[in-house]
Design a protein around this nucleic acid. Structure first.
Length: 674
RNA sequence: GGUCCCGUAGCUCAGCUGGAUAGAGCGUUUGCCUCCUAAGCAAAUGGUCGUGCGUUCGAAUCGCAUCGGGAUCGCCA
């Protein structure tokens, strides 16, 4: 439990009011709008109302009857607000001593009893991470770091989605290239992204052509099944144009066709080497990509064909390695990786389905099976517990061909997820899009008699990220990756460092650390609930972006200390004597900075409680800004007198400690100079 | 149509378990390096907090309605 000057004064007033009037209303405190009104303020309206007296009357009574401690310098009453001004010297001395005596300021044990799993990223292994899923990585990382800083045992997991249908064409395509000894000159996951976009397009073109054939379109034998060549484009267009208007298929098919034509064109332009090579290989070597895809999926789901298993694992591992490499650039780490295929091969999916079936929680539609979400929620008290008053739609979990869909594995996975870490809580950091499937998983657990487990699993959702003016599309190889942002940011930063006198090596190191923090901060600072239109230029611009601003405040603070010895100022000695020292303050900038530092522990606790990792970033910004103002307004080493030098040195050291704690929580690296 | 999320300055966003005069950055305009790193600081500019009604002594914050944007709603994940 942290005791704050604000709380102490509140307790004082509260106990007086309880003793004297036995009030029931809560005493609330707030900060006055301007510094002239004091530092802490108590609106007396609700209590005055309870006591049926005027607020100012109550205020007068409080002022005349309470003996305020020496931490309070001034008390006044204004328009129903009781305003108190702290004795700055007492306040500052206490705050700085608290900061200095702790190893890590703000660290505490408020979450000591929790064991928490944070699952994040869990991106499809069909290409590199893009800024959309990377947003989840950043949020998950900081959430985990925050819990951990507050004493929780944290376990960060990555769920590897290696079983989806979408992987099969990728595996097929990758091995076509591999057999041709295609030279890989880029990061593995990036190449896979290209292969995936290409193969998926081929597959879709094949499906489109089959659909058109059913409608009556006649293709030429000579052309590839997997591409739309000039003749195709013409005959398909003509064909669709003469289809009767009322034919409802026409619209959809036409849209599909134009989309594929556009995607094909764009891929030929942007990734010609991979696209054309694969097109040739696929055309010549694969008779029916769709059939082969289905075979691959089925075979891998069964897990018995050794060659297929090896191939899927190799490709998935390659993508995963790329993801890990990207995450490591930003100091984001996972403790464990859970493979969807392992869940599938455990045999538990069938057991789970049988149980749901027995309990009549599955709805049949042909071979397809749907989870009766609403029925479960109604019967097992979920709706009552979480105050759900609307009808929850059913979720399809087995398709009409009898193939189990991803939610099946997810249900089994979550059935045992907590056990993996003996966890008391689990946060799945997953895009908001998934909120229905995530709800379905929890409802399935209710249906399976594991309501207690379900109640401990939370969906930490975040909104998607788009690019300004367009959407990202993995299937079209159209996205922005953290990798490329990292490179762009480094370049921008280097143009600034070049003016300074650093070695090549130092420059590189500095640019990397700033690039990582800038991008991370840029993504972190935004409310997870807000959809983001990502602006590459802003994310990468060191002047616009504040990641550098934060690190700069730290570097400046450190620089003061490193210069102190030249002025015959012994920082170590000042620190040793700080316990008995009464500090003095002169400027508003000092006061604002110390007040912010005082808030740090409660900010962290609030951020964890309200699940707002972004608030840590925004608070750090305020603190850094306050330090920059202090830096400008208050010379430290050249302060007017030794007492002031001492006080300011302690402020600087305290700021450093604050920033170190905050950087640790955000996973941002500090720099001694920049 | 059902459900969820968002709407605050020209732009990007803080502030939301109700508190007094709504804050930053970018942009535009102007100052500050003989002084601890100018990736900084100071100042000016800029807002009927989408709209309406309600609750309240008090609403950007809570409730209802409404408009606008986005996501999602059985066979991809």
């Amino acid at each position: 439990m942290i005791s704050r000057p604000y709380d102490e004064i509140k307790h004082l007033l509260e106990s007086y009011l309880k003793k004297e009037f036995s009030i029931k209303s809560d005493l609330i405190w707030s900060k006055p709008p301007s510094a002239g009104l004091g530092d802490i303020s108590f609106p007396l309206f609700n209590i005055a109302k309870e006591l049926k007296i005027r607020p100012n009357e109550l205020g007068d009574k409080i002022i005349s009857e309470i003996n305020f401690p020496d931490s309070i310098k001034e008390v006044n009453l204004q328009g129903g607000f009781l305003n108190l001004a702290f004795n700055k010297s007492v306040f500052v001395t206490k705050v700085l001593q608290t900061i200095l005596e702790q190893t890590k300021y703000g660290q505490n044990s408020s979450m000591n009893s929790e064991r928490i799993i944070v699952e994040h990223t869990s991106s499809n292994p069909t290409g590199p991470l893009h800024i959309g899923n990377f947003r989840g990585s950043v949020l998950g990382d900081v959430l985990g770091r925050l819990f951990s800083f507050l004493g929780a045992a944290v376990n960060v997991r990555y769920y590897v989605n290696d079983l989806g249908r979408q992987i099969a064409p990728l595996v097929i395509g990758y091995f076509l290239l591999k057999e041709m000894e295609f030279e890989i000159i880029e990061k593995g996951d990036l190449l896979l992204g290209k292969v995936y976009a290409s193969m998926f397009t081929f597959l879709e073109i094949q499906q489109l052509k089959q659909k058109l054939a059913i409608l009556g379109w006649k293709s030429k034998d000579s052309v590839s099944l997997y591409s739309l060549d000039g003749t195709d484009l013409k005959t398909i267009q003509d064909f669709l144009n003469v289809l009767p208007r009322e034919n409802k298929e026409k619209d959809n098919t036409y849209q599909w066709y134009t989309k594929l034509a556009r995607v094909q064109k764009s891929l030929i332009e942007r990734i010609p080497e991979v696209y054309e090579k694969l097109n040739k290989l696929t055309t010549s070597r694969i008779e029916n990509l769709e059939n082969l895809t289905n075979q691959y999926v089925k075979s891998y789901q069964e897990g018995k064909d050794k060659l297929i298993v090896e191939r899927f694992r190799e490709v998935t591992k390659m993508a995963l390695d790329g993801h890990v490499e990207t995450l490591n650039l930003f100091k984001i780490y996972h403790d464990d990786f859970d493979w969807e295929s392992d869940v599938a091969w455990s045999g538990e999916v069938q057991i789970m389905l049988d149980e749901l079936e027995d309990k009549k929680y599955l709805r049949h539609d042909g071979q397809a099976r749907l989870l009766r979400n609403d029925t479960i929620a109604e019967e097992l008290g979920y709706k009552a517990k979480y105050l759900v008053s609307y009808e929850i739609p059913d979720s399809i979990i087995i398709n009409s061909e009898g193939i189990t869909l991803y939610p099946c594995r997810d249900i089994v996975y979550h059935l045992h997820k907590l056990e993996k870490f003996n966890a008391s809580l689990c946060y799945n950091v997953i895009a908001k899009m998934q909120q229905l499937p995530q709800l379905a998983v929890r409802l399935a657990l209710y249906g399976l008699g594991s309501a207690d487990t379900a109640d401990r699993i939370h969906h930490f959702d975040y909104e998607y990220v788009s690019l300004i003016g367009r959407k990202m599309a993995g299937r079209e190889f159209d996205y922005v990756t953290p990798d490329e942002l990292f490179v762009l940011a480094q370049e921008e930063i280097k143009t600034i460092i070049e003016e300074r006198n650093y070695s090549e090596e130092e420059q590189q190191k500095i640019a990397q650390k700033i690039a990582a923090s800038s991008i991370k901060y840029h993504i972190l600072k935004m409310d997870p609930q807000k959809a983001v239109a990502f602006d590459i230029k802003k994310a990468v611009d060191p002047n616009e972006n504040s990641g550098a601003f934060l690190q700069y405040s730290y570097a400046r603070a450190l620089s003061i200390l490193s210069k102190s010895s030249k002025q015959d100022i012994d920082v170590q000695k000042i620190l040793e004597l700080s316990k008995d020292e009464k500090l003095i303050l002169e400027k508003q900038a000092e006061w604002e900075l110390v007040k912010l530092m005082e808030e740090l522990p409660s900010i962290l606790i609030k951020a964890a409680k309200s699940l707002r990792p972004d608030s840590v970033a925004n608070f750090t910004y305020s603190l850094a800004a306050a330090f920059h103002k202090f830096y400008d307004a208050c010379p430290v080493l050249k302060a007017e007198n030794p007492e002031l030098i001492k006080s300011r040195i302690l402020i600087v050291v305290s700021t450093i400690k604050c920033l170190e704690s905050l950087f640790e929580v955000m996973g941002i690296e500090s720099l001694e100079k920049m």
